Simulated scan of single mutants.
Amino acid sequence: MIVQTFLESRRHIFSSEEERNLNFQQSMRTSFQLNQRNERGFSKVEHASHHHQIPREGEREVTLRGKPGKAVKYGAEYARNNGIPVILFPKAKDESNGLSPSDVVDTLRKFEVDFILLAGYLKLIPAELIRAYQKSILNIHPSLLPAFGGMGYYGMKVHKAVIASGARFSGPTIHFVDEHYDTGRILAQRLVPVLANDTAEELATRVLNEEHQLYVEVVEAVCEDRVVWRKDGVPLIQIKENPNEFR
């Protein structure tokens, strides 16, 4: 049977086509949500998939795509080529097959999706989806939140603001998603030094490299039940080699 709760899940993702033949009754089913504004967003998914950096058992069940664009088109095409269903959200005015928020919840439940991973998706997640998937939606942001986060902080704008501020460090943050921009509980961060003569593009490249690694490590921890919640509501990741230590 499909495990229903976050901490009881022993299910993994990013399987190859060959691995899809495994026993998915014990695999985590995961949805990816893409947006056209971040052309690198889907590369996080592809990078992990191609390099087998996630535990082998698992299943990507459905990809939600945003408005048409290069990254979204590529991500949707990649999903379809690997037998992963693609659905359209949010509903566009000129497309009749898009889903409403309540439709998305119903569809994800139909596919028995357990977690949602956002990759370059910049819109607020509807309240219906937040309520249905509490502590089960992850997003990655290219700065050390809570600094340089919130509405309007995305892509190169973040890196330009970091450099202009004189901050000595930046880096990606992975956080759980709530009803607001970039205010959900922080799960993991990775430090990236800001060099004296950095351009926004140079900093962005180094941050992106860390994003690829960090997202994979965090999802692995989620799949291995190594995310625990402190009494004050702060999520921590157990160290794989020593469950009594956290990061």
Rank of each mutant, 00 (worst) to 15 (best):
I13M: 08
F14E: 06
S16G: 13
S16E: 07
E17I: 13
E17S: 13
E18T: 14
E18S: 15
E19Y: 07
N21M: 08
L22C: 12
L22I: 12
L22N: 11
N23S: 10
F24I: 15
Q25C: 13
Q25P: 07
Q26Y: 15
Q26I: 09
S27N: 02
M28Y: 04
M28I: 05
M28N: 04
R29H: 15
R29T: 05
T30Y: 08
S31R: 00
F32L: 07
L34E: 03
L34M: 08
L34G: 01
N35Y: 09
N35L: 05
Q36D: 10
Q36H: 14
Q36R: 13
R37D: 12
N38A: 14
E39T: 11
E39S: 09
E39P: 07
G41F: 04
G41N: 03
G41H: 03
F42Y: 14
F42A: 08
F42R: 01
S43W: 13
S43R: 12
K44Y: 09
V45K: 06
V45I: 12
A48P: 02
A48R: 07
H51M: 03
H51G: 02
H52I: 00
H52M: 09
H52V: 08
I54R: 13
P55N: 06
R56C: 07
E57V: 10
E57F: 09
G58H: 01
G58F: 03
G58M: 02
G58A: 03
E61K: 08
E61P: 01
E61W: 05
E61C: 06
T63S: 09
T63D: 09
L64E: 07
R65I: 08
K67F: 12
K67D: 15
P68M: 04
G69I: 01
G69L: 01
G69N: 06
G69T: 04
K70R: 12
K70Y: 10
A71T: 03
K73T: 15
K73Q: 14
A76R: 00
E77D: 15
E77Y: 11
E77F: 05
E77I: 00
Y78T: 11
Y78N: 07
A79R: 00
A79Y: 05
A79Q: 05
A79E: 03
R80H: 12
N81P: 03
N81C: 10
G83I: 00
P85Q: 04
V86T: 08
V86Q: 04
I87V: 11
I87K: 10
P90N: 07
K91L: 06
A92P: 03
A92F: 02
K93E: 14
K93L: 13
K93F: 11
K93A: 14
D94P: 04
E95T: 10
N97H: 12
G98N: 01
G98T: 04
L99G: 06
L99S: 05
P101S: 01
P101N: 00
S102T: 15
D103V: 02
D103Y: 04
D103I: 02
V104T: 09
V104N: 06
V105M: 05
V105D: 06
D106P: 00
T107M: 02
T107V: 10
T107L: 00
